[in-house]
Amino acid sequence: MRRLTLAMGVASVLLASCSGGPATQAPVVSASPPAYRLAPDDKVRVNVYNEEGLTGTYVVGSDGAVSYPLLGSVQAAGLTLPQLQELLTNRLRAGYVKDPKVSVDITEYRPFYILGEVNKAGQYPYRVGLTVDAAVATAGGFTYRANHRVVAIQHRNQPQEVRYKLEPGVQVLPGDTVRILERFF
């Protein structure tokens, strides 16, 4: 009986190692994107329950701040929406509104830019889930000289552009500059 139990234990270890058991599994990576951080040109909608004078749409200025009633200039650049909501709640609670119920939403993302070998280069409004293919379509499509294999994208606040293989699903983020390269024959 002991031999049978030992043999079954060895067999289960061997079976687990051959079938990709715990020792050979790859680590699980979260597929969720990083939290969106506010930057200049983003528009946010702030709602304060039962306080119409404090509810409205505000633009993050070039200095990264929002001009907000009663509070003045509130630094918003670099914050996530929940962080801005918490900041406004705490500052309003500190002497202006007894128990503020604040919510913050994005109403308009900062634009993206596309240039190079497209028919209508320029600035366009960002939409959630925007890909390079959709950005090119927004800009009137490729010119006849466009490189259909590689695209250069400079992310906002990054010193250099990054080149990506042009495949379906390459994401464009708010504030990105997309450059469609010229092909060489």
Rank of each mutant, 00 (worst) to 15 (best):
R2Y: 14
R3F: 15
T5V: 08
G9E: 11
A11Y: 04
V13N: 14
V13I: 09
L14R: 15
S17H: 13
S17T: 12
S19N: 11
G20D: 06
G21V: 06
P22I: 09
T24E: 05
S32L: 12
S32C: 11
P34T: 06
Y36T: 01
R37Y: 11
P40M: 05
D41P: 01
V44G: 02
R45H: 03
R45K: 15
V46Y: 00
V46I: 12
N47K: 14
V48F: 14
Y49H: 05
N50K: 15
E52S: 13
E52H: 08
G53L: 05
L54D: 06
T55D: 03
T55P: 04
G56Y: 00
T57S: 09
Y58C: 13
Y58F: 11
Y58S: 13
V60K: 12
V60C: 07
G61P: 02
D63Q: 11
G64T: 10
G64F: 10
P69C: 03
P69D: 11
L70C: 08
L71C: 09
G72F: 00
V74C: 07
A77Y: 12
A77M: 10
G78R: 06
G78N: 08
L79M: 08
T80S: 06
P82I: 08
L88W: 03
L88P: 00
T89A: 12
R93E: 08
R93D: 13
A94F: 14
G95V: 09
Y96T: 01
V97Q: 01
K98I: 14
P100M: 07
V102L: 07
S103C: 03
D105Y: 15
I106P: 00
E108C: 05
F112N: 02
I114K: 03
G116N: 04
N119I: 08
K120P: 07
A121V: 08
A121G: 06
G122H: 07
Q123E: 14
P125N: 10
R127V: 04
G129H: 10
G129Y: 10
L130W: 04
A134N: 04
A134P: 01
A134I: 12
V136Y: 05
V136F: 12
A137I: 05
A137F: 02
A139I: 03
G140D: 04
F142Q: 02
T143S: 05
T143A: 05
Y144S: 05
R145K: 07
A146K: 01
A146L: 01
A152W: 01
I153C: 00
N157I: 14
Q158S: 10
P159R: 01
Q160L: 10
E161M: 06
Y164D: 02
K165R: 05
E167T: 13
E167I: 15
E167M: 15
P168E: 01
V172F: 13
L173F: 14
P174I: 06
T177K: 03
V178K: 10
I180Q: 02
E182M: 09
R183G: 04
R183F: 09
F184C: 03
F184E: 00
F185T: 13
